[in-house]
Design a protein around this nucleic acid. Sequence first.
DNA 1: AGTTAAACTTACCAAATGGTAAGGAAATAG
DNA 2: CTATTTCCTTACCATTTGGTAAGTTTAACT
Lengths: 205, 205
Amino acid sequence: MEKYEKFGTKEKILDSALESFSTSGFDATSLDVIAKSLGVRKQTILYHFTTKKGLLNAVVERAAGNLIDSIEEVLNSDLKGWERIEALARMIFRLALREPLLLGLLREVSRPGSVGSERLKILMTPLMDRATLWMQSEMRVGRMRRTDPRLVILSAYSTVVGLATEIEVLRAAGIEQALRPVAIRRRELMRFLRVSLDPDYLQSR
Amino acid sequence: MEKYEKFGTKEKILDSALESFSTSGFDATSLDVIAKSLGVRKQTILYHFTTKKGLLNAVVERAAGNLIDSIEEVLNSDLKGWERIEALARMIFRLALREPLLLGLLREVSRPGSVGSERLKILMTPLMDRATLWMQSEMRVGRMRRTDPRLVILSAYSTVVGLATEIEVLRAAGIEQALRPVAIRRRELMRFLRVSLDPDYLQSR
DNA sequence: AGTTAAACTTACCAAATGGTAAGGAAATAG
DNA sequence: CTATTTCCTTACCATTTGGTAAGTTTAACT
């Protein structure tokens, strides 16, 4: 149980850090700048998170928490088979659109060798394993085409990360409401998943 | 005409900088480190490029030069209509596979607000304008569906940039020869372009 | 040979950055 | 009221970084 807290300073730091990490990147983010924007001294940040890397990890952890909660929600629904996958994709795209910062963070942290990549990997591995096992069992009973589950999952993942790039590029070109491209991406992803996984799906080519 | 040159130091600096910028990013790249790796003093780099940003711009310029040359090559071929687009896509994917560093650089520099983004924009704009004009003329005579050319071009662009992410993610997961995913991406891009542009293409949905 | 320009080095620096050490305020517990 | 813990601040520092200034070496031109 928490004791007293001045006024959610920790949360505010996390918010601001997410903003900065996801738009400017980890290296370009200075603790002093974050602190100043919050009317707080840098040491306050270091008090709560000990190091800059610790701050990033906390940000990643919170973001991943959001994501995992949403995934959990779908996974606990009574949707079966293909509808389940579709619901997942839908949910992720919705989340991505609602919280673009999460996407930016994901892109920042997805680069291998980046500071946050280890943490991301640690957080994602259980999800990945779970999905892999499920897919393998589906394959065994013939409800899913036999392919490398990792490959499919990672490709889907990078599609979502790519979405961050796309939205940003379009925005930089002055195209604000980029809903149609996003919708197209989702359809593409669904198609990709169907082609890769659905044994009953007739390939039109 | 150049005078004397010790031994292509400038080129070696560009090579090393490309490597570092595209894998570690601009901020994480230190001039001292590049210099040391070349057995040269930092000031040598600054002698050739005056500032770090100048170095990045030079790297971007050279990379864009490669790209533009390749594009030029296709544009000067006698391929017509749809085959032309297909050849372009094929060429870009081939280039991307052959020179992954270019992809990495592109991703680094594509982030709006990044140091190199202005330069990239300057270099890309003529290409973009040329493509836009061509597409508009094709639309006028009915050889192409009417859509926003910018949207199509930028989406295609971000697909290629996304490819960088995908290859890196897969590699980080230990999947080395990621040829199939790349091929799939290319097919997807082609499909996307067909759906967006080809008036005779029957949408299977 | 002597002059000039290019290529590179040594010496130095101001600013920014992440981080340590220690102390003060404020709230809770006793 | 006092002791203690949480939260945050002031003071300070070591290091790194991009960059300036002023040589020094090397090659070319005359």
